[in-house]
Structures are given as C-alpha cells and as structure tokens.
Amino acid sequence: MTHLPYIAAAYALAVLVPAAYGLAAMRRLRLARTRLAALDPRPARRETRRETRR
C-alpha cells in the first residue's frame, strides 16, 4: 500500500476522536443519571428501569 503512514494516521484520527467523544458522553450520561436518581427517584426510576430492561 502506498502512502501507508498518511492513510494510517488519517484513519486513526477518524476513529479515535469520535470514539473518545462517545466514551466521554457515555460517562457523562451515567453520572447524570445516578446523580438525578439520588436527588429525585421518581422520574429517574423510569429511566433506569428502561435501561436495565434492555
């Protein structure tokens, strides 16, 4: 394959940056859900129940 370093770098960027964003979003969601459940169990319960059922 010609120009392999350039291709590898481009694909790595294109995969790793969205992956990092995805992991950060997942962590943020989980944190928000647990904090909300601790404060206000009623609506959060609905959300978590749906989550565990999946």
């Binding site: 969205p18 943020r28 969601l29 944190l31 928000a32 404060l39």
Partner: peptide
C-alpha cells in the same frame, strides 16, 4: 455517529439542568 453523540450529550444536559434545578 454525529447524531448519536449530539443526542447523548443533549440527554445528559437535560438531566444536568434538572439536577441543578433540584
């Protein structure tokens, strides 16, 4: 992927706003 990222972040933001209000 873009839509999924924005949706997840917006969901978190909605919950965070609710946490602040509470």
């Amino acid at each position: 992927v873009f839509a999924a990222l924005v949706t997840a972040r917006t969901r978190a933001a909605v919950m965070e706003r609710r946490i602040r209000a509470l």
